[in-house]
């Protein structure tokens, strides 16, 4: 979908063994399924229900999201890097869509 733009903040470089902070934000309505439209009909739920982060193919962390997470979900967390590589971020939508983003980091001894 065109309106989904993940934004990622990962340091470009780090020292081996350093714990770096990662910030992510994706534009999404996160429709809770609790709201009603003007005619009183419930607006169906449509949220991002799962988020994962991998580094060089290995899982770093994973989040299960419920409708109580705000629109345009912001998630920040940490990762310990031992080698240069690529972070892969994936968001899973209720409607089956999958949004992906990547970010490289250079790790020096």
């Amino acid at each position: 979908m065109a309106d989904i733009k993940p934004r990622i903040k990962v340091p470009k470089t780090a020292k081996k063994g350093e714990v770096v902070e990662i910030k992510t934000l994706v534009s999404h309505v996160m429709e809770s399924g609790q709201r009603k439209d003007a005619e009183g009909k419930t607006i169906p739920r449509k949220i991002i229900n799962r988020f994962t982060c991998e580094f060089n193919g290995k899982p770093v962390c994973e989040m299960t999201l419920h409708p109580a997470i705000s629109a345009n979900p912001f998630i920040s967390f940490f990762a310990k890097v031992e080698e240069s590589g690529t972070f892969t971020f994936t968001w899973y939508d209720d409607d089956g869509s999958v949004y992906k983003a990547e970010s490289k980091i250079d790790v020096t001894a």
Partner: peptide, 24 residues
Amino acid sequence: PEAGVCSFEFTPMSGRAEFSTRMR
């Protein structure tokens, strides 16, 4: 209306057991 907000799973690769988000 629903009790669940989120569950955040860490691994040793997380380095630090901390996360932030925004909730309703």
